[in-house]
Computed example of a mutant assay.
Amino acid sequence: MRKQQMSPMPFLIIGVLFFILFGTVSWGVYFDNNWVNTLDITWIERIQGTISEGQTAFIMKITELGSMELVIALTILIAIILFFKRMFAEGLWFGGTILFCAAIGGKILKKIFDRDRPEFLQLIEKTNESFPSGHATATTIFYGLIGTVLVLASVQLWKKVIVSFITLIWIGFILFTRIYLGAHFPTDVLAGFLYGAAAVLISIGVFLLVQEPLRHLLRKLHLVDRSKILKRDR
């Protein structure tokens, strides 16, 4: 049976397109364009128009599943499991993507834009920079990486569709909670999603390009790598 080669180029190209979209939103926010204000006000009014006490209590608990602190803790746990299974290359890739793209990259972007939080109804207290949303960035990268890997590892089309659907719905719901709670503008979470999606796709593309040299380096260190999910030859 002939092996199908997984090419990094589609991931890199689509990832760059997402990054361009992120740049477009960022440009609008930085220069306070009218379309940004219109989009933010319109969607804040729509989403916060559904507020109820019971719904708020539930959302305040669920939203923390996308917090940077929890994502980092889960990433460390997953990396330890991958290392224990001697999947060193994929453990380094997964942990490195979260560290550099979500934690460090997200923090740098927040410092650059230094956007104030919304002055609308805030159901939770937040005082640090608003753009891009840290929850949106961490959620998209962490759950996006897991969902994408599961899609690539699945053979049947129906499994790919179900995993993709669940991943997108879950990420979308976490993004919704940030606007609902008054913690972020809609453009904050949109930018976090676009940046996160770009990071996931570009990270996978880069890993497909460098995984063989990385495995060669691991062999020099006398580490037998058993990574298999993102091998280019499938």
Results as ranks from 00 to 15, higher is better:
Met1Lys: 06
Met1Gly: 09
Arg2Val: 11
Arg2Ile: 09
Gln4Cys: 05
Gln4Leu: 12
Gln5Thr: 14
Gln5Gly: 02
Ser7Met: 10
Leu12Glu: 04
Leu12His: 04
Ile13Gln: 02
Val16Asn: 01
Leu17Asp: 03
Phe19Val: 03
Phe19Ile: 04
Ile20Ser: 10
Gly23Thr: 12
Gly23Arg: 07
Val25Cys: 12
Trp27Tyr: 14
Trp27His: 09
Trp27Cys: 06
Tyr30Thr: 11
Phe31Pro: 09
Asn33Trp: 09
Asn33Pro: 00
Trp35Met: 07
Asn37Glu: 10
Thr42Ser: 08
Thr42Met: 02
Ile47Trp: 13
Ile47Pro: 12
Gln48Phe: 10
Ser52Trp: 00
Thr56Cys: 05
Ala57Ile: 08
Ala57Tyr: 11
Phe58Leu: 07
Ile59Phe: 12
Ile59Gly: 07
Ile59Ser: 05
Met60Ala: 13
Ile62Tyr: 11
Thr63Gly: 09
Thr63Met: 06
Met68Glu: 09
Val71Tyr: 00
Ile72Leu: 03
Ile72His: 00
Ile72Thr: 06
Ile76Gln: 00
Leu77Ile: 11
Leu77Gly: 02
Ile78Gly: 00
Ile78Asp: 00
Ala79Asn: 06
Ile80Asp: 00
Ile80Lys: 00
Leu82Pro: 08
Phe84Asn: 11
Phe84Met: 14
Met87His: 08
Glu90Ile: 13
Glu90Leu: 12
Leu92Pro: 00
Phe94Asp: 01
Gly95Ser: 07
Thr97Ala: 05
Ile98Trp: 03
Phe100Thr: 14
Ala102Met: 11
Gly105Glu: 02
Ile108Lys: 05
Leu109Met: 15
Ile112Val: 15
Phe113Asn: 10
Phe113His: 07
Phe120Asn: 14
Leu121Val: 14
Ile124Lys: 09
Ile124Phe: 03
Glu125Asn: 12
Lys126Met: 00
Ser130His: 02
Pro132Val: 08
Pro132Met: 03
Gly134Pro: 05
His135Leu: 03
Ala136Thr: 10
Ala136Asn: 06
Thr137Lys: 00
Ala138Cys: 06
Ala138Asp: 03
Ile141Ser: 10
Phe142Ile: 01
Ile146Leu: 15
Thr148Trp: 02
Thr148Tyr: 01
Val149Asp: 01
Leu150Tyr: 05
Leu150Ala: 14
Leu150Ile: 10
Val151Asn: 01
Ala153Met: 10
Ser154Phe: 11
Trp158Pro: 01
Lys160Trp: 01
Lys160Thr: 03
Val161Asn: 04
Ile162Ala: 13
Ser164Ala: 15
Phe165Asp: 08
Phe165His: 12
Ile166Pro: 11
Ile166Glu: 06
Gly172Ala: 14
Gly172His: 13
Phe173Cys: 10
Ile174Arg: 02
Leu175Pro: 08
Thr177Ile: 10
Arg178Gln: 15
Arg178Ile: 12
Leu181Asp: 04
Gly182Arg: 00
Ala183Tyr: 06
Ala183Glu: 08
His184Ser: 13
Pro186Ile: 07
Thr187Pro: 08
Thr187His: 10
Thr187Lys: 06
Val189Pro: 05
Ala191Cys: 14
Gly196Ile: 05
Ala198Trp: 06
Ala198His: 08
Val200Leu: 12
Ile202Thr: 13
Ile204Asn: 06
Val206Phe: 13
Val206Pro: 10
Phe207Ala: 08
Phe207His: 10
Gln211Ser: 04
Gln211Glu: 09
Leu214Cys: 13
Leu214Met: 15
Leu218Ile: 06
Leu218Lys: 04
Lys220Phe: 15
His222Gly: 01
Lys228Phe: 13
Arg232Ala: 15
Arg232Ser: 15
Arg232Cys: 14
Asp233Gly: 09
Arg234His: 13
